[in-house]
Lab assay of single mutants.
Amino acid sequence: KKSYVLIKVKNPKTKETHTIVVPEENLEEVLKALASQPNVKVVDIERFP
């Protein structure tokens, strides 16, 4: 059974918020990819039960 993680990201320029759902096993690479985006800020990470 896969567990999923909900990542909320915000664009500081446009103030838009997006929610991305990723499998927990991919969380680290997704966070690394997001960290390299200049106008993306991770605001929240939630685990799915």
Rank of each mutant, 00 (worst) to 15 (best):
P49C: 07
S3V: 12
E16V: 12
K8Y: 15
K13F: 14
E24S: 06
E46H: 13
K15I: 03
R47H: 09
P12L: 15
N39V: 03
N26T: 08
K41C: 15
I45C: 11
L27N: 00
P12Q: 15
V30K: 02
S3C: 11
T14E: 03
I7C: 01
V43K: 03
L34S: 00
N11F: 10
E24M: 09
K2F: 06
E24D: 05
K2M: 08
L27E: 02
N11M: 04
N26P: 00
F48W: 14
K13C: 09
L34H: 00
E25C: 05
A35G: 07
R47V: 08
P23N: 10
T19M: 10
E29N: 08
E46K: 12
S3D: 14
S36H: 07
S3M: 13
K15W: 06
S3K: 08
I45P: 01
L27W: 03
E28I: 08
P23G: 06
I7M: 01
V40I: 10
L27D: 00
P38R: 09
N39I: 03
K10Y: 15
N26D: 13
L31C: 02
I45A: 02
L34E: 00
H18L: 11
V21D: 01
A33R: 11
E29P: 03
E24Q: 06
N26G: 06
D44V: 12
T17Q: 09
K2L: 09
P38E: 09
E29W: 09
Y4E: 04
K1I: 09
T19S: 08
F48V: 13
V9N: 00
V21P: 02
L34T: 01
V21Y: 09
V9T: 05
K10W: 15
T14S: 07
E29V: 08
E46M: 13
P23E: 09
V21A: 05
K8A: 04
H18M: 12
K8S: 09
T17P: 02
F48H: 08
F48S: 05
E46A: 13
V21T: 05
E29K: 08
K1G: 11
H18A: 06
E16C: 15
P12C: 15
V40T: 10
V9A: 02
P38F: 03
A35K: 09
I20M: 06
V42D: 01
K41E: 13
H18Q: 06
P38T: 11
P38N: 09
L6K: 15
V22S: 02
N26A: 09
V5Y: 15
V40P: 02
N39S: 06
V5A: 03
I45L: 04
I20Y: 11
V9C: 05
Q37L: 13
I7W: 00
K10L: 15
P38D: 10
S36P: 02
K8R: 11
K15H: 12
I7V: 07
I45W: 07
P38A: 09
T19E: 06
K15G: 15
I20D: 00
K15Y: 05
